[in-house]
Design a protein around this nucleic acid. Structure first.
Lengths: 346, 346
DNA sequence: ATCAGGTGCTCTAACGTTTCAGCGCCATGG
DNA sequence: CCATGGCGCTGAAACGTTAGAGCACCTGAT
């Protein structure tokens, strides 16, 4: 069926096929009350037969806005974009976009070709009518510009400098605090190292703060140290090396994400130490792989897919002119207890 | 800078700012030789000052094609789209698209809203001018339709029913054969089970065929059995359970992807068997996680990012009217030997 | 018979872009 | 002094869509 030789089928083609004007076809397809049911039937039949699909450029031009939304992820460096977090986020956004018949663009190029970052151009060119920004770097000035220009964007994560921009996230401070309390209170560990992410990422800062806050609040005499990584496995290993060397009688390592926890695991093992008997280990994120290691890593489950869904949901509201009710939506997280901190107990 | 109140800056705005016609502005910005250097300077200055960004709908409408390309991934079921394979592919495609200043759409909804799958609409509506299709299911009729309609698409993988469509892939049969030979010839194992993927996936079929072919060609008396999984960890575990129960003196398991290999690893371990001493284990894909297990899993490295790059490259050629030189581009793979098949040796 | 109002369509304009023919102008050559 | 032609720009048209004004026809009421 649907011969569709080479040229594309337009309203005009359907119109001549039915023998009416193209505006009538347009109105018929949008179920306008002023078009007779008979004509509508005929139009729908002809459209289906010819394989008519509305041209999105024509439609977007006329409407003054496209039906696509964009997801902006930090730069091409694959250890960032390639992170499972973004994939989960994408799955969520996709689901919501599909439900609304909206197309999804993915934009990732931060370098400024004509004075504007590629992803900002996507909005300014109206290729997409709104964007979900998952760039975590505090220092990305382009994000500020987009927010200041009142472009419809939803941020994923916490952007302290942009208190008025709609955002979706989890309470990272509470998450880190929860896992820290698990180490201190459930397992009685008091000599703990934290491997943080780069401290120009709000996420890394918040997790570190949650860690320190929980230690301080515990009321027990705890000793802690910090090593900074970059969320990669390699950096986690290096950081673990550093803290294992520098802190005597280290009892636990809490890495700011699971990948660094893997790196730490390798380093701990390579020294002949056992997990959790000699060193307890905790991570953060739970993007599917932490359960595969032996022992499974105790971690905070970040509901990335739900974040994506919610972000898209809010963005579509924004595009409809509805202001998000809480400007900052906070989703719940889960503490997932596996074996890396010690035997289960209350 | 860049006040950009609410309305968008168009050619006309730049034109009135400079005091010339909008056509002149258009020509100036595209560096047309018939426009004086002085005027060009003035136009560029005004455009930058006003923050002019060409409206993509207007441009696409005029040009008759958009500057976006689409990546089509199989349906929303997250264990499919969320697979690391697609992330790596996406990274590659993104890199290439960025290099050409093209926007990237991601489409995944197969259900037919108006008689056409969502991702086919993306092409027919000219929201994207070409697509990279990474859907592996043999039975997806929509893919056939798109190819038959001569829409510009590049397939990733092997589509035996579509010999004339441009495609990019690796030689899965050779890959599976290589890893099978590693088991048989390097480690002298002769009682081997294969855990395949669903056999309506060409990839699964090819890997199984490579396995059998290598066994047959080995000239040694080998015994093998098959269990079918669905590429998920759980199914891998179930399949391993099945083959461990049914085949006595089983020496090795070759899973058609790493995730099923993980599942198999869990099952093997739960029976108190050791890897590789009691059972050798091999996987396929090497998407970054197989090196984290202990022992690391011997596998075939699939260059997914390179596949994405190459696919995009070919698609852009296609859009320029250049026919891909080999219709089917085959990229090399690597056999990655870790510890799961036994001690390293020649 | 005339008019009001409704019905079902057509016509026109507009969205922002690019392309192309054309027009006025100046310098040059006859 | 008039043709020639290059230069630098203008104006119009077209891409496909949709909204709204308008027009022809019909029905029913006056």
């Amino acid at each position: 069926m649907t011969a569709a030789k080479r040229a594309n089928v337009t309203l005009k083609d359907v119109a001549t096929a039915v023998g009416i004007s193209q505006s009538a076809v347009s109105m018929a397809l949008s179920d306008h009350p002023r078009i007779s049911e008979t004509t509508k039937e005929a139009v729908r039949a002809a459209a289906a037969r010819l394989g008519y699909v509305p041209n999105s450029a024509g439609r977007a031009l006329r409407a003054g806005r496209s039906t696509s939304i964009a997801v902006v992820v930090p730069n091409t460096g694959q250890h960032v974009f390639g992170h499972p977090y973004f994939m989960h986020l994408l799955v969520g956004v996709t689901a919501e976009a599909n439900a609304r018949d909206a197309a999804l663009m993915v934009s990732t190029n931060p370098d400024e070709t004509h004075g504007v970052a590629a992803y900002e151009r996507v909005l300014r060119s109206q290729a997409a009518s709104g964007a979900i920004i998952a760039s975590a770097s505090i220092s990305d000035r382009n994000v500020n510009r987009m927010v200041e220009a009142a472009l419809p964007v939803v941020l994923v994560g916490r952007f302290v400098h942009l208190p008025h921009a709609a955002s979706v996230g989890i309470d990272e401070i509470a998450g880190a605090a929860a896992i820290t309390r698990h180490l201190v209170e459930d397992h009685g560990l008091t000599r703990i190292a934290h491997i943080s992410g780069p401290l120009d990422h709000q996420t890394a800062v918040d997790r570190y703060e949650g860690f320190r806050g929980a230690l301080a609040a515990s009321g027990r005499p705890c000793t802690h140290t910090l090593a900074v990584g970059d969320f990669s496995e390699e950096s986690g290993r290096a950081a673990a090396r550093q803290v294992l060397d520098s802190m005597t009688d280290l009892q636990a390592i809490f890495a700011a994400n699971d990948e660094m926890a893997y790196g730490a695991m390798l380093e701990i093992r390579s020294r002949g130490l056992r997990i959790p008997e000699d060193i307890a280990l905790a991570g953060y994120d739970d993007f599917g792989v932490s359960r595969l290691t032996t022992p499974g890593i105790t971690t905070i489950h970040v509901p990335a897919e739900a974040l994506g869904r919610k972000a898209a949901d809010i963005l579509f509201d924004l595009l409809d002119g509805t202001a998000p009710d809480p400007v900052h939506t906070v989703l719940p997280f889960d503490l997932v207890i596996r074996e890396s901190c010690g035997p289960h107990s209350g």
